[in-house]
Design a protein around this nucleic acid. Sequence first.
DNA 1: ATCTTATTCTCGACGCTCGAAATAATTAAT
DNA 2: ATTAATTATTTCGAGCGTCGAGAATAAGAT
Lengths: 410, 410
Amino acid sequence: MRLVTDSDTVRRQNRGLVFSALRTAGPLTRTQLAAETGLSNASITAITQDMLGQALLTDVPDEPSAELRLRGRPAVRIGLNRHAAALALIEIDVNRARFSLVDYGGTLIDRIETNLIPGFFIQTAPLGFIEERLATLGQRNPLEFAMLRRIAISVQGILDREGDGLTWSPVAGLAGHDIAPPLTERFGVPVVLNKRGRLLAEGTRWLDPDLRDARLITIFVGSTVAMGMSASGPVLGRGEDGATEFGHMNHVPNGALCRCGTRGCIEAYAADYGVLRTAYSVPEHTAPAAQVPAAAYEDLIRRAQQGDRTATQAFNLAGRAIGYGIARLLAVSDPSHVIIVGPGARALGLMRPEIDAALAASFVCRVNGTPEVRALRDESEPIFMGLMMEALVDLDQTDFAPLAAVSARA
Amino acid sequence: MRLVTDSDTVRRQNRGLVFSALRTAGPLTRTQLAAETGLSNASITAITQDMLGQALLTDVPDEPSAELRLRGRPAVRIGLNRHAAALALIEIDVNRARFSLVDYGGTLIDRIETNLIPGFFIQTAPLGFIEERLATLGQRNPLEFAMLRRIAISVQGILDREGDGLTWSPVAGLAGHDIAPPLTERFGVPVVLNKRGRLLAEGTRWLDPDLRDARLITIFVGSTVAMGMSASGPVLGRGEDGATEFGHMNHVPNGALCRCGTRGCIEAYAADYGVLRTAYSVPEHTAPAAQVPAAAYEDLIRRAQQGDRTATQAFNLAGRAIGYGIARLLAVSDPSHVIIVGPGARALGLMRPEIDAALAASFVCRVNGTPEVRALRDESEPIFMGLMMEALVDLDQTDFAPLAAVSARA
DNA sequence: ATCTTATTCTCGACGCTCGAAATAATTAAT
DNA sequence: ATTAATTATTTCGAGCGTCGAGAATAAGAT
């Protein structure tokens, strides 16, 4: 439902524009800011004056190495004030949890990392685990923690309707608890759960300027298969954000048994356990391994690269599952780029022939051409980036852009 | 890219709200309008005064049968002025073309209907055909045609990037021509091509008030299989609107030959020609029939309903293709309703067991539940409705909402 | 006629953007 | 050193659209 627009909305929108310009381009002069946002110089002056007054922005002393000094009044750049806020970012994976404290400028202040054994959250309640580590971060950085404005969590699985917890997760023991409300209660700030797949896509766009305007999907291939979509405009996927259950899209009716208990999911062919199962000729209806050692998967890739028949065949099947999955997705969405990330990215060369074949055999690709498929090795960086930028932009737009001007007092 | 917001934007947005309220609820009093839009009475007075002055709105004389007259100043309802504009709507199907002239209130003024033989547009240039009939409409209704503001066309197939024409269409001979620009040139109004699949979904939402807030997908099953999505917010599918190539989503790698030339499309199993091919045990790699007589398809439904084995089997395969298609779609989107329309809607009973089975076997349905699947017999009504409402709302928001106030002169 | 009541209109204030003109802070030229 | 030129930023007043409060309007009720 569209809402009434008034001068409040105008302020929020245009301040949002200023934040967004500074967030993407870094510190800018007022003149650049006017050009970037499309606002007039007069408005930029008014807006930045307010924001400086509220300590959301700060003057950036120009580097003295100003070689190409122009004539005229020197421009002074202003940027986001790092000390305006702090955020806690939490990444929960199957085998690792990472807690980061960052400031409003996106600088890492402190970090706690914990390796998790499979089934860890069956023993230990996730909420307590999280609270404890957040408290530690708070004790170690009391000043910054006082400025805490958001807790953002990256998770895998399916969120419940309100986004308070998970209804299902590949991380055993994580689903079924209310996570966000108790944390909000305890730390007094909004808590957001984000799907890792989408963050990956968002983060990838932030990290590569060439992709800033791309409509891209990322496909994580590793212990699971997960997809995320991201584009500069709004993107819809499941649950109105850009996260999907791609890995559990059916590939073959009644096919291989997946960790989720269903048969024929893409994941059952393309995740590490699926590839290993095929490679070792284990019947495809056999229960999947709970966890695959990274070394075993790496080893299989090496064997396939050296021409081992069964290993090659396993990656062919994986590529076929992913390829048809993408082809089917293309019937309802049209990304410009497809990026394969995670451990499986190293095997893209092995899977590519089958992926390409599947795409070539699809009607939409024949008519509209094929999106660019590429690999990206490290997924940890983009996920963190996506989580952080998502939270920062949310803070910009939701908390700071609406702030009314502090009227000047005599 | 988000744009600067100023008082112009405010006016456009809020006027858009007024149009939208009147468009969905019919004539309203100023007080109701204020409640519906959230604007203050003062603003509604100002806005409606302008719009009345520009003859976009008009007083609706209250029905004298005002039984329950309240005390106080009687409220006077205002509604959209039918005579403010006219629109030409064109629906092009495989076997029929329909040209309608409607007014700003959505009332049909005149209509030309033509049956098409297969391959008609190979003989006759589509553009000339369209121009000729539009000209006829203009001659028959000169007064209304003078108010023409839009030409909106419903087509099947894949639009080119600019939306000027089609790159592919199941209507032979229709693709490959520039259609919109010459029409704009000749008639001096914007011309929009809309994908039939999406219009169907939009129109269905307009026709059934219960579905007004649903996230729905419609699947047309007949001579083709086509899907559209529609929801109250923005919906993204292929090409950023809610239209997709669902019918050409792969169902079985290297499967039955589709009219599009690809193998294994859903359509190759579920469109009329696919079902007939299966029912008559024609090899699935045989070239599809160019057109299936409606009677032949009806007949097959009757035979299946009477228990004929091969006929039943054909509809089972069709249901399976559609069911897995929906299940795969659900991995990346989450509609609340799935509506089967077109000739195939009569066969939903025959296909439903396989559709339900496919959904039940999917992971997402097990976790999130199954969307409601229902049939809708007539597809012509919702397509026309969707085409009309789409064009009217576009006219409201694009042309009329931005109109500045006519400043009062002494 | 007068009172009551619901609807609509009028008026002044407020908040925001904008263009134009003024001011500020430099370098280049004299 | 002073002045001119140049670029960046601020100030000022106008314009526009919303809003709340109170006034005007047009009935029914008494």
